Simulated scan of single mutants.
Amino acid sequence: MEDMRFFAAIVEHTSLNKAADRLNVSQPALSRRIAKLESELGVQLFRRVGKRLELTAAGQLTYDFAIELRRFHGEYLQKLNAFKSEEAPVLTIGASLTTLQTTLPDWIKAMTEKHPNLEIKVVTGKTHEIASLVKERKVDFGLVASAVDDDASITSLPLFEDHLMLVLPKASFILEKSQLEMSDLNGLPMILFAPGTWYRTLTDELFRRHGVKPDVQMEIDSFEAIVRLMSACRAGTLLPKSYVRPQLLADNDLYVVRVRDLEQTKRTTSLIHGDPAWLTPPIRYLIEETTAHFARGAHLPKEPS
């Protein structure tokens, strides 16, 4: 990075002496730095024409890169400075209930570990409610378990795809088959998520499509409560893959049974925000970090066996 800065200074001051004065280094030291850079790159960057230095074609390409590098470095420092202010930055996000329980805990942990001074506030609601909060600028951005493609004023960035999984208590269900069909869920005692969310809507549509009528024993709006009640009620459930952690299964004596049709019930969790012109540099930076976090797959557990 520093060698590129020195190189760009020579180009912009058109001489080694002027660049050396500007950079507060000796002319021989600057010459050695450029010779080292040329050696590392394996090309000649300058040619002497009389007393002038002219860029070679490789030198022009390298200068263009040095300018881009300087621009990116400046943007990085600008974003970084947002986290160095005496006042801790505050991020207000909207999250759908499903996202709150499945995706948000790990994401908040990752963000606050990276930025200890960052304060995160969360407003919950259904997806359409979060979309309204985004448009009204009451939250900086939203994390929802769907895409919002029907509103031109909202930008929807896909983060990852999720699907449903059949989870059963080991003590109550001893199956000879490691894989079931949807028809095997007919009459199965189940605890389902409460109506009104995309998760329950997806579940009900799935049952209708396959003509399945499970024995619904409870409807609860908390994945944690469902998991805790499964063994006591001798009932199974359908949970999003993003929620099913190996440790959760082990702690509650549960296991996953593969149902191929469930793997087709894909849902895209998305980050939504309003007009990009509203976004401050710190918020833009956090959006970039959030999309990178999910692109790395840092949110997903290993597939349970």
Rank of each mutant, 00 (worst) to 15 (best):
E2P: 01
D3R: 13
E12Q: 06
S15Q: 03
L16G: 03
L23M: 07
N24W: 09
P28I: 04
A29E: 03
R32G: 02
L37P: 01
G50C: 01
G50S: 03
Q60C: 04
F65W: 14
R70D: 15
R71Y: 12
L77E: 10
K79I: 09
K79C: 12
A82R: 08
V90M: 10
T92G: 09
G94C: 05
A95W: 04
A95R: 04
Q101V: 08
T102L: 00
A110T: 08
T112H: 09
V123R: 13
T124N: 00
T127Y: 02
E129I: 03
E129H: 09
R137S: 15
V144T: 14
A147N: 12
D151S: 09
T155Y: 00
F160D: 04
L166H: 06
M182N: 04
M182L: 15
D184W: 01
D184H: 05
P189I: 04
P195N: 03
Y199I: 12
T203H: 01
P214E: 08
E224K: 02
I226N: 02
R228F: 02
A232R: 09
L238K: 02
K241H: 14
K241S: 15
Y243H: 14
V244Q: 02
Q247R: 10
L248P: 05
L248C: 11
A250Q: 05
D251K: 01
L254K: 09
V257N: 00
R260P: 04
Q264K: 03
T268P: 00
T268I: 00
S270I: 06
S270Q: 08
L271V: 11
I272S: 01
D275A: 14
W278I: 08
R284A: 14
T290K: 05
H293I: 09
R296W: 03
P301M: 06
